[in-house]
């Protein structure tokens, strides 16, 4: 319980929100969906800055980027027609994999990124699509997903900063993608997330971005795996090689649910299938 919480602020603009955060310094917390805060204990927090009314639930495109506001609920992303086709629908699928509608309705894109639990749905997909995080603060900062995702929120994101937007390069739009989650049940935190995007050019793999999540503390790109695919006319053995490369040498997060060995085996299987399904445009199957 946030026993010292006394005030809620509902800024209408980013500037207003930043001013309030500045004023309270470390005694204020940003809140968007709120799903991770309701049961926390923090004896310092006196004020909540509700950033859900600042017009940050947008989804638009400019010449170079698909721009997604940070307070979009996951359910809105899962349902978005635009995201349903962009890069093979990767972002929509990632958002839809959050297993509870009630949480999808509340959880925001920004929250999923900032908290970045190992099993968070959005970070692997954003990493796959080479997204950039737009941070409002004293100065505006643009941080690539690779740098932002998974790191402690205060190292990248300052106390008086707000993640306002995610930009995905439009050139990713024509990539194919695949996204799979492995867990004990639909509501179980992911043990493995495989998130991939492949670019085809006349039967050859012209680009590959391969990301593993769930199994590692933070979502990671797998360059060794990507190398196994790029420039090749892909056949099943390539997916197997890439999957093996993807899990090679990773630092596995283990809890009581399953052993390290098992997670590695499954990650490899899930990755191989996700790649195969991605390449064949979902015609054959990852589960």
């Amino acid at each position: 319980m946030l026993r010292t919480l006394k005030e809620f602020h509902y800024p209408a603009t980013v500037a207003e929100a930043l001013a309030i955060l500045q004023r309270f310094d470390s005694r204020a917390s940003v809140i968007a969906g709120g799903t991770s805060l309701g049961r926390t204990d923090d004896a310092k927090i006196e004020a909540m800055v509700d950033i859900s009314r600042m017009g940050l639930a947008f989804l638009k495109e400019d010449k170079v980027s698909l721009r997604i506001g940070s307070t979009n609920p996951l359910q809105a992303l899962a349902r978005s027609r635009k995201l349903g086709v962009f890069a093979g629908g990767l972002l929509a699928r990632a958002a839809a994999s959050q297993p509870s509608r009630l949480l999808r309705n509340a959880m925001t894109l920004g929250g999923s990124i900032v908290l970045s639990t190992p099993w968070a749905e959005m970070p692997p997909a954003l990493l796959t699509l080479d997204a950039k995080m737009i941070i409002a603060g004293e100065i505006e900062r643009i941080i690539p997903a690779e740098e932002f995702i998974g790191d402690s929120k205060y190292r990248v994101l300052g106390r008086s900063e707000i993640l306002t937007e995610v930009r995905v390069p439009r050139e990713m739009a024509s990539w194919r993608s695949g996204y799979s989650v492995f867990a004990r049940t639909r509501t179980d935190p992911a043990m493995v997330i495989a998130s991939v995007a492949l670019l085809e050019d006349r039967g050859t793999c012209a680009g590959a971005r391969i990301v593993l999540g769930g199994i590692t503390r933070r979502a990671i790109r797998c360059p060794a795996a990507e190398k196994k695919l790029v420039g090749k006319k892909l056949a099943p053995q390539h997916f197997a090689q890439a999957a093996r490369a993807a899990v090679g040498g990773i630092e596995v997060v283990v809890d009581w649910r399953a052993s390290r060995e098992y997670r590695l085996q499954v990650a490899e299987v899930v990755m191989r299938r996700t790649l195969a399904a991605c390449w064949s445009d979902g015609k054959e199957g990852a589960r």
């Binding site: 809620f8 709120g34 805060l37 309701g38 049961r39 909540m48 009630l102 309705n105 509340a106």
Partner: peptide, 23 residues
């Protein structure tokens, strides 16, 4: 989800939702 209510037409879990968010 046994605590679910709708806020602006969307169902959410009210057990982890601050009353202040509903302002």
């Amino acid at each position: 989800g046994s605590c679910a209510v709708q806020v602006d037409g969307k169902s959410i879990c009210s057990c982890i939702y601050f009353a202040g968010q509903a302002h």
